[in-house]
């Protein structure tokens, strides 16, 4: 009760005294929890190691630089493979995600009771498993190599793309759809003229965003044997070839920067 009537005046406060006390108690509890969790977290920490960390890091860094530039000759092909895993995986995902998105969107699904929950289930199950886990499963099913990586990337991306797209579809302006329907257009024409132009910017943005993420994810798929530059990373780590690891990091960094630049340009072009 923020408003309080007294004999000759009306008091107004943002919160009643009780709410104020509750708020204070809430903040206090949060602070206490933070202190407590820090306690738990550091229970097994060996502080000697922690204090030693800067020296260890400096030591590792010293062994990592300079990068072994000549190793780049062996990285071109894995890098190309990585880009392909990301790009083909994204394309496959787009192809599968679009129908799912239309089935999941409340305003375009043929049946809210049956088809929509099914589509939503596809989305959730795809999203709940990380690309690396998908890759792990697929490597044991279809064997190591880029194909497993491509499928892992696309399976993970279906849910992401379909979810963002069905939200975009649900937000379209129904008037435009109505207007196209009123001309006597068929269902397909309504889709192409009434709906597609409205979701095109979102579509372009989502696809390049996911492609951008997939470039990053595909660089680690090699750790579980699913092809790409990650294979070299793992091999170099295994033999403690730190200068090679540094070069791989630099190559990954460069490709991620390039993909971000490209996706920013594409998003800009489609607004």
């Amino acid at each position: 009760m923020p408003i309080e009537r007294r004999a000759n005046e009306i008091l107004w406060r943002r919160q009643s005294p009780v709410a104020q006390a509750a708020r204070f108690a809430g903040w206090l509890a949060l602070a206490a929890l933070t202190v407590f969790t820090f306690e738990v977290m550091t229970r097994n920490t060996i502080w000697a190691f922690f204090l030693d960390a800067p020296r260890q890091a400096a030591d590792l860094l010293g062994r990592m630089v300079p990068p072994r530039w000549s190793y780049i000759d062996q990285l071109w092909w894995p890098l190309w493979e990585t880009l392909n895993i990301a790009s083909i995986g994204t394309l496959l995902a787009i192809g599968m995600a679009l129908p799912v998105a239309f089935l999941a969107a409340r305003n375009t699904t043929p049946s809210v009771a049956f088809v929509r929950p099914l589509a939503l289930f596809v989305i959730v199950s795809s999203r709940s498993i990380n690309s690396l886990i998908w890759a792990l499963l697929l490597v044991s099913i279809i064997g190591p190599g880029a194909l497993a990586g491509i499928i892992a990337i696309s399976l993970r991306s279906i849910g992401f793309i379909a979810k963002l797209m069905y939200e975009a579809i649900e937000e379209i302006d129904a008037n435009q759809v109505e207007a196209i329907t009123a001309t006597g257009a068929s269902g397909g024409q309504v889709l192409v003229y009434g709906i597609w132009p409205q979701i095109l910017p979102a579509f372009a943005g989502v696809c390049v965003f996911r492609w951008d993420i997939n470039i990053r994810e595909s660089t680690v798929l090699g750790l579980v044997g699913a092809g790409g530059i990650g294979l070299n990373l793992q091999a170099s780590l295994n033999v403690l070839a730190w200068p090679q690891v540094t070069l791989i990091f630099l190559v990954i960094l460069a490709s991620v920067i390039a993909s971000e630049w490209i996706s920013a340009r594409v998003r800009h072009a489609f607004i």
Partner: peptide
């Protein structure tokens, strides 16, 4: 529906 033209309040043009 082809025989009935419709005109809308908020124009309902496909904006893009």
């Amino acid at each position: 529906r082809r025989r009935m033209g419709m005109i809308f309040q908020e124009f309902a043009l496909v904006e893009r």
